[in-house]
Simulated assay, not measured.
Amino acid sequence: MDVAVDEIMVRFGKLGIKAHDLDVKLFGGGFTIDPERKDAVRDIVDVGRKNVSAARDSLAKHGLKVMAEDVLGRRGRKVFFLTATGEVWVRPVSAEAGDLDSSLF
């Protein structure tokens, strides 16, 4: 059972923050298993897809709409988030350390 979004919304509610005051951005869920084994094990171990689905369901339950996302795919990702501005940069895990994806969310 997913309770993270429920708990966050309770805490935000105590601070007077409403769902319509939030910008939601969703990242993750890459399926990084060896490509030769993917089809054989996808239904069993595709935790990323299940997590993305659960996150979307939980967000929708609270009336939260995803404004930007970078989900699923074949690679993990590193997310850089500036809390003061809400800016987010995403870089595939296998990229060189100095290469940020040009995607700004």
Rank of each mutant, 00 (worst) to 15 (best):
D57C: 06
G73V: 03
V41M: 12
V79L: 08
R75Y: 09
I33E: 14
L104P: 01
V5Y: 03
A97F: 07
L26Q: 06
I33Y: 12
V90C: 12
A54L: 09
A54V: 00
G29E: 04
K25C: 06
V90F: 08
E96W: 05
K14C: 02
V10W: 07
G63W: 00
L72K: 13
M67H: 11
I17D: 05
V45I: 13
G76A: 13
F80H: 12
F105S: 10
D34E: 11
E7T: 04
D34G: 04
R74P: 10
T85V: 05
R49P: 00
A40F: 04
T32S: 13
D6S: 07
I44H: 14
T32K: 14
V88S: 14
R74L: 08
L64F: 03
D101A: 15
N51A: 10
A19P: 12
A68F: 06
P92T: 05
V5D: 05
G13N: 03
K50F: 01
W89P: 00
G48V: 02
G30R: 12
K65G: 06
V66S: 06
P35E: 08
V45N: 13
L104S: 14
G13I: 00
K50D: 06
G30A: 13
D21N: 11
T83L: 13
A84R: 10
A68P: 04
D34I: 01
G30F: 07
H62Y: 08
P92K: 12
L100S: 12
T83N: 15
D2N: 11
A95F: 11
V88F: 11
V3K: 14
F12Q: 05
V88I: 10
V93D: 15
F105Q: 09
L15F: 02
V71R: 14
V52E: 10
F31I: 02
K18V: 00
K78S: 10
V88D: 09
E7W: 03
F31R: 12
G16M: 01
E7Q: 13
L64G: 05
M1I: 00
L100V: 06
K38T: 01
G28V: 00
H20M: 04
V93P: 03
L64E: 04
G98V: 00
H62E: 01
I17N: 07
I8A: 15
R75G: 07
V3H: 13
A40K: 13
F81A: 13
R11P: 00
V5C: 04
E87W: 07
